[in-house]
């Protein structure tokens, strides 16, 4: 089991006359009812890192196994959304796009957004999908939403390469801020994971969540500057608008890559604080509900 590090492993428990010295190396697990709030058990998570890897790898593998066009799906979703947006919002409604060609303006936001939306959906369903495993084997349950969120990164990378291609096509060169891209990717991972923790735990109790999440994501899409720039939101609403953590993430991503975008200083700070709050709250709530997952799921 992964509860042991290599040092402890040298001690084998077969012999009861082992000297006390080496007995100290044997891991002792204490089982009792837990009450109240718990935060992360980092040590345990680290010990289970290989399981994170295997579950992530499984998610990726299974996703492409029985599909005819495999990885192309990663592009199709954001790309076609971009085309529709370009036609209706860009061409017909003439929504401004920060001086960028509308297609790349929309696509540069749709890439991180699609990653976020898919990861959140996966994470929400992760516990219920692994119901059988949860009721039979112990491991930190947090690993399930975590590996769902990580598994989506492959799609993200595929969609991102298309974005690079489009930049060449439109002759747009990245700015010096491109080094911040990983930061914004990280922020969308954390947001999807944080919200995913809440929703997956809720989904165990109330299966309605599964249906609600699709709707939530749909609304969220329009509350985020994807099809339109943040500048069309009136100044006095911006603070409120910034409470949506994805505002800072999407705007930041676009700005870092294309060099055009609106004021993202304060709204990014608000976004980050909200993300941190969601994450901490999500961990606490998840850990609190975790005890009953196997009984209720």
């Amino acid at each position: 089991m992964s509860l042991l590090d290599s040092k402890k492993k040298r001690v084998r428990g077969g012999n009861c006359s082992l000297p006390t010295e080496s007995m100290r190396g044997i891991p002792t697990i204490c089982i009792r009812a837990t009450h109240g709030w718990r935060f992360l058990n980092f040590k345990e998570l680290w010990e289970y890192r290989e399981l994170v890897y295997f579950l992530t790898w499984r998610d990726i593998k299974v996703r492409y196994k029985q599909t005819a066009i495999g990885g192309a799906w990663a592009i199709i979703q954001p790309f076609f959304t971009m085309m529709i947006f370009s036609l209706f919002f860009g061409k017909f409604a003439r929504i401004p796009s920060e001086g960028l060609p509308y297609p790349i303006f929309a696509y540069s936001a749709l890439v991180p957004w699609t990653y976020f939306a898919n990861s959140l959906t996966h994470a929400t369903n992760s516990l219920v999908e692994h119901q059988q495993t949860i009721t039979k084997v112990y491991f930190p349950r947090l690993i399930l939403p975590l590996s769902s969120v990580l598994g989506g990164l492959v799609d993200f990378v595929i969609a991102f390469t298309v974005l690079i291609g489009m930049m060449f096509f439109y002759n747009i060169y990245p700015t010096g801020a491109i080094w911040t891209i990983p930061l914004f990717v990280l922020l969308s991972i954390i947001t999807a994971f944080g919200v995913g923790l809440w929703l997956s735990a809720l989904n165990v109790q109330y299966r309605d969540v599964r249906y609600a999440v699709g709707f939530l994501i749909q609304l969220w899409l329009f509350a985020t500057p994807i099809a339109y720039p943040i500048t069309i939101v009136p100044e006095r609403w911006r603070a409120l608008y910034g409470l949506n953590p994805m505002v800072g993430v999407i705007e930041g991503f676009r700005k870092a890559l294309l060099g055009k975008g609106a004021i993202w200083g304060p709204s990014l700070a608000v976004s980050i604080s909200i993300i941190v709050l969601i994450l901490i709250g999500g961990i606490l709530y998840f850990r609190k509900m975790e005890q009953t997952f196997a009984d209720v799921v």
Binding site: L4, T28, I31, R32, A33
Partner: peptide, 11 residues
């Protein structure tokens, strides 16, 4: 109640 398990557990 509580329990204590000493050693690697496989279930």
């Amino acid at each position: 109640g509580h329990a204590e398990i000493r050693g690697r557990v496989g279930s």
